[in-house]
């Protein structure tokens, strides 16, 4: 399980307007590119000091590539990161607050305790 890496994906995409649009339009291609080029980047350092060991589990990669936010919740991705990025991508396609209520509805099957988000 690499909850940290899922969160790192959501975090780095959400803060970059170009990546938000790229992930919205081409989720699978963006996830593949990101895992190859970005996943090991130590965020405050130049490329020569990248990490060497970070990769997604298959189920994590697939959840991100499928925009499957209920699955990301189940896998323990940080719900604030997921929500913020997905609002940024899809709120525009709905009535005001329509995407947020749809998001809640798609998670309606979830009961307490929620998946652990500790990284």
């Amino acid at each position: 399980m690499s909850k940290y890496l899922m969160n790192k994906f959501l975090f780095t995409v959400d803060r970059d307007p170009e990546l938000v649009e790229r992930y919205r339009e081409d989720p699978r291609g963006t996830v593949e590119w990101w895992e190859a080029e970005y996943a090991n980047k130590l965020l405050s350092c130049h490329g020569g000091e990248a990490s060497t060991w970070l990769r997604f589990e298959d189920v994590e990669r697939e959840a991100l590539a499928a925009h499957d936010y209920p699955k990301l919740f189940e896998l323990g991705a940080h719900p604030f990161l997921t929500l913020t990025l997905f609002i940024g991508m899809f709120e525009r396609d709905y009535e005001p607050l329509g995407f947020q209520t749809e998001y809640a509805r798609r998670l309606a099957h979830v009961s307490l305790p929620y998946p652990d988000i500790t990284t």
Binding site: F73, H78, P79, F80, L81, T82, L83, L97, Q100, T101, Y103, A104, R105, L107, A108, H109, V110, Y114
Partner: peptide, 9 residues
Amino acid sequence: ELGGPRQFG
């Protein structure tokens, strides 16, 4: 609640 089933009620 943020990013869960009880949000935006």
